[in-house]
Amino acid sequence: MKGLIIDTHAHTQDGIGWLSGGYVPAGRMVEIMDENGVKEAWVSATTGLQRDFIESNRRQYEETKGYPGRFVNFYAANPNYPELLEADVRRSIEDRGFRGIKMHPWMTGFAIDIPESRRMVELAIEYDVPIMYHDGTPPWSETLQVAAMADYYPEAKIIIGHAGLFDAYRSAIRACNTHDNIWLGICGPCVGDAAQIIREARTDRIVFGSDFAASNTGNLMEERLKVLELACPDEEIRRKILCENARQLIAEPCGA
């Protein structure tokens, strides 16, 4: 599996804003990905979740475009600025090759079920790209609030980014097994919880994520890969989670 892993949940860090921590150049990210056998990372801009999202998404595009096939850009969306957001999402997908939308309602500060937020799901459907949500954090990023988007929009491809995170993995399992358009990211649950997710949820709908670069080093990627290895001793299922299931969402990255 080394060299074939798809990390569906990663971030770029430009060093601006407190969430972003230090600047991590894309070249350094690629080195860490190579050390861990990761072929491609689906990234969103941490700074874009909180500050100037238009500039942050542009900066991510500029940062990653020198590494074709290694990054898939997800648009870090801020529905608090609907008058600016839609045009920039369209520009990013159409002109810059962005292939997904990232929503972090807790950090960005919006409720999931408002028209401006739901508009992002509609755009994701229009462009046939996945939309990923941070989840597991009440009151604005609860796992079943994300599942409700899958309920409203059965044609959308919804990624529950943390599969319940610390407490809500049972809700994530229920959501995944109820809705045909939900994928669960093993990115945060501890080994025991991840093992239960893999035992009970649809294994063709589980993907791997690291939250990589949401820290200053590659430790998190190594840790998250180890969690999956311990939670899923079955190599065939692990291969699906690490390498294959994500291709249901994005067939190939730009420039692959």
């Binding site: 501890c190 080994v191 025991g192 919880d193 430790n219 840790e223 180890k226 969690v227 311990l230």
Partner: peptide, 17 residues
Amino acid sequence: SDSPRSPQGFELGKVLK
């Protein structure tokens, strides 16, 4: 470690680093 929710060796490994 909170074993068995997370394996003892895995949790120890993080601390040792």
